[in-house]
Design a protein around this nucleic acid. Structure first.
Lengths: 228, 228
DNA sequence: CAGTGGTCTAGACCACAGA
DNA sequence: CTGTGGTCTAGACCACTGG
């Protein structure tokens, strides 16, 4: 024997039961203590196994309400969003970064930094490239009140990387969509206007304050992949 | 006081230290026992907090090698991919499903079910709609050897839901991309050909065998969103 | 080999929400 | 009120891997 029951073993046993329909969808399954006894492990181990299944969306758990097999298993997909430079360098290409625009302006969209709608923000547009081929266009708005912003050398270093290093982590939102390339983006990527682009929009908050908002438009053919 | 130190509290304290650069990127941080003492919690709690940070990609952990602040924090984004019917019904709209095509044919793409490249598969095309408005086009290939497939009433029930209920646990791969609407899809969605669409491609495996491969093309404006 | 993280156990208290 | 899951603790053993 390699070891006693690990929580992964227990989890797979439970998973098999669910897929074998020993417990039907929507049906309540025994509580942790009972299952722990049945599987011959401690309640802590049972708990860990069940929490893992719950985070996979396979079961629903509620205090006092017990644990039920999920009626509608929600698939959760985890994507890794690497820093662009690393994403490019991993393909073996030489990374390039070119700042195209740096200005102070009032953001057009609503999901932009600053307090008032009319407040001016730092606006950056840059191109990330691999082996000279444009890979993605970064269109970013930054709260001008950010401390240390004046020292930021956005010419040579991606704003993304500078912010990652200097802005404390808070919360944010990430949105993925397909958009037609606008005139500026199309030009920077060397594409016809209207070309379908995968766009990744990230809003970063520090508390309730929007610190930065960025839209990455990837060149055609770019994909996000994950295993299920 | 509400309670003692929870692992979430501990995790946030550690997170703050990292962002405050008390520990620089790449630097090793004290081991679990030392930290547990410092934060006044048990090693188990410390472990849970650190494991959580590791799964967020903020730190790297290795047995014997210790724990280090990640050089390149990888952002992980978790998206929930609900069943289309629920996605639509949650907006308050009336869900509609219409099967457009059902045939046996040899898949064109390589990521398709069956063994040989030339094997014939069940090919389905369907439209999911909300309040009569097309929401997404489902283009699916299914391994014809799937048990019970003959009984599947794909006319009224989405293949997605039938498969979820009848195909045992599977692994797979999910890819997101932006594609121009092809002629058929554009027609079904009532759009001009070439319109940028968010496409979600899922290949489902049972062991090493491809069971089904599906491409969902969402109507323009559809977004995937997650909090960070 | 030895230090570090990974996990298990047994017992305990707590928070939440269903009855 | 009461049952269920969520979590904490203290102690232990184990697995991996760097030195």
């Amino acid at each position: 024997m390699s070891r006693r029951n690990t929580w992964q073993d227990i989890r797979e046993k439970v998973r098999r039961r669910i897929h074998r329909r020993d417990w039907a969808p929507g049906e309540m399954i025994p509580n942790e203590i009972a299952l722990a006894g049945e599987f011959g492990c401690s309640r802590a181990t049972m708990n860990r196994a069940l929490r893992s299944l719950a985070s996979d969306g396979l079961i629903d758990r509620r205090r006092k309400g017990g644990t039920r097999v999920a009626l509608h298993p929600v698939r959760r997909a985890v994507f890794e969003i690497p820093v662009l430079r690393h994403e490019i360098e991993e393909t073996g290409a030489v990374y390039g970064y070119r700042l195209v625009l740096r200005e102070m302006a009032a953001p057009l969209g609503h999901a932009a930094p600053g307090i008032g709608a009319g407040a001016e923000c730092l606006h950056l547009v840059a191109v990330h490239s691999g082996d000279g081929q444009p890979h993605a266009v970064e269109d970013r708005w930054i709260d001008p009140a950010l401390p240390g912003l004046a020292d930021a050398p956005f010419e040579g270093v991606s704003a993304n990387e500078w912010l990652l290093e200097h802005v404390p982590y808070t919360s944010g939102e990430l949105t993925i969509s397909a958009e037609p390339a606008d005139a500026g983006t199309a030009d920077l990527l060397g594409l016809p206007q209207g070309t379908p682009l995968l766009c990744l929009n990230r809003v970063t908050l520090d508390g309730a304050r929007i610190v930065t908002s960025v839209r990455l438009s990837y060149r055609p053919g770019h994909r996000l992949t994950t295993s299920l």
